[in-house]
Simulated assay, not measured.
Amino acid sequence: MLTPSLFEDAQSQSHLLAFERWLVDRRASGFLRQPGSVQVYRDMWGAFTAWCLGQSPAVTLASLDGLDLQAFQAARFGEKSPDLSLSPRYALRFMRLIDRVLQHHAADAGVPVNLAASQWLSDHPEVRYAEASRADPLPEFLSVYEAKTLIAFLSSARPRPGVSASRRDGQAALSWQDVRNRVSVATQLGAGLTPGDVRGLVLASPVVRGGRVRDRPWKLSVPGDGNSAARETPVAPWAGELLHHWLQVRYEAQIEGDWLFPATRTGKPWSKDGQYRAARSVLEEAGIDSADGGSFRLRHTFALRQLRRGTEPAQVARWLGVEPEVMARYDRVVVGPADVV
């Protein structure tokens, strides 16, 4: 537990203030309502602060690095396993707490985020997955490089000012089915849709009114399908540009019917198998392995993108059309700030 003598200098005050401000925000957000939980976190942070100030030189929130965390993990603080180090589960709780306080402190003080705790967890999977069930596999998702590569490939389907003649020729050679296939994949990555969601979209689904850019869809109204209720989900700007282009292509091709992504010019609905094969073909053309995780990886990537940007899990769940409890599966992946696309 924290003691008054522990906070007699500026360094100790900085540790305490960072924790207290994080705690105030957590309580204001409706978290940590139980006094017992608050005390547990106080004791954990007190142990961490005592260790930091006991080093020579003292470890500050700015100077904390992976070697410090490794030494702390091996020290005799908190709950201990037989070798006197922190157990993997308790180490996970500690590192998550440290990471969250560091993130909050950076946002509050306007300083760069210290990523030492999130990086330490990434480097120690035995701790990172300490609470994982063997029967609950991690969601498959695209790496940052894969996502950027795929976005560049998908976006090449729409005209842009200043592109080379060869690029314009390539765009002109695309059939309306080619454009449909790429844009449908874009809605999975850029709006978090399932394959069934894609097939169920109608012409009224893209929402333009209220957006920042004229005529560019910025969200989608996803119809209910019997398994989930109707919902709305935001569309990434790059995917919105592609949707806008597809609507033009669809109109110029004189495609009938109300489906946003029909199977034929006469407006027949897209079959499950047809849409699956189209998505797989697009991924392969983009150089993305289509066998591992399928197009559901795109939806998972959307979810992780939103969570890594700080969106509340409950909000992301509403966009995905799932129950809030489902978001727990991403906890083992989102350990701290990361590049997002």
Rank of each mutant, 00 (worst) to 15 (best):
T3S: 10
A10N: 07
A10G: 07
A10E: 15
A10Q: 08
S12V: 04
L17F: 08
A18G: 10
F19R: 00
W22C: 10
R26M: 15
F31I: 11
P35R: 14
S37E: 13
V40Q: 14
R42S: 06
M44E: 08
A47P: 00
A47C: 04
T49S: 11
C52A: 15
G54P: 01
Q55D: 11
T60V: 06
G66C: 12
L67N: 08
L69E: 09
Q70Y: 07
F72Q: 02
R76Y: 04
E79N: 13
P82R: 03
D83R: 01
R93D: 13
L97F: 02
I98S: 10
I98M: 01
I98F: 02
L102K: 06
G110L: 05
V111R: 04
V113K: 04
A117T: 06
A117P: 04
E131L: 13
R134Y: 15
L138I: 06
L142P: 03
S143V: 01
E146S: 07
K148N: 11
T149M: 11
I151T: 13
F153E: 05
F153H: 09
L154E: 12
P161A: 13
A165S: 06
D169V: 03
G170K: 05
Q171G: 12
Q171W: 06
W176N: 11
D178Y: 02
V179P: 01
R182W: 04
R182G: 08
R182C: 08
S184W: 10
T187S: 12
Q188M: 15
L189W: 03
G190P: 01
G196Q: 07
V198W: 04
V202D: 13
V202C: 15
L203Q: 08
P206D: 05
V208L: 06
V213I: 14
S221L: 12
S221P: 00
V222M: 06
G226K: 02
S228C: 10
A230W: 01
T233A: 05
A236W: 02
P237Q: 13
H245Y: 11
R250H: 05
Q254E: 14
Q254A: 13
E256W: 06
T266G: 12
T266D: 15
K268A: 15
K268R: 15
K268Q: 15
P269Q: 09
P269W: 03
Y276S: 15
R280T: 15
S281Q: 15
S281P: 00
V282F: 04
E285D: 05
A291E: 13
R297I: 04
R305L: 02
A314V: 09
V316L: 04
W319H: 08
V322G: 07
V326N: 08
A328M: 08
R329V: 14
D331P: 00
D331K: 02
R332G: 09
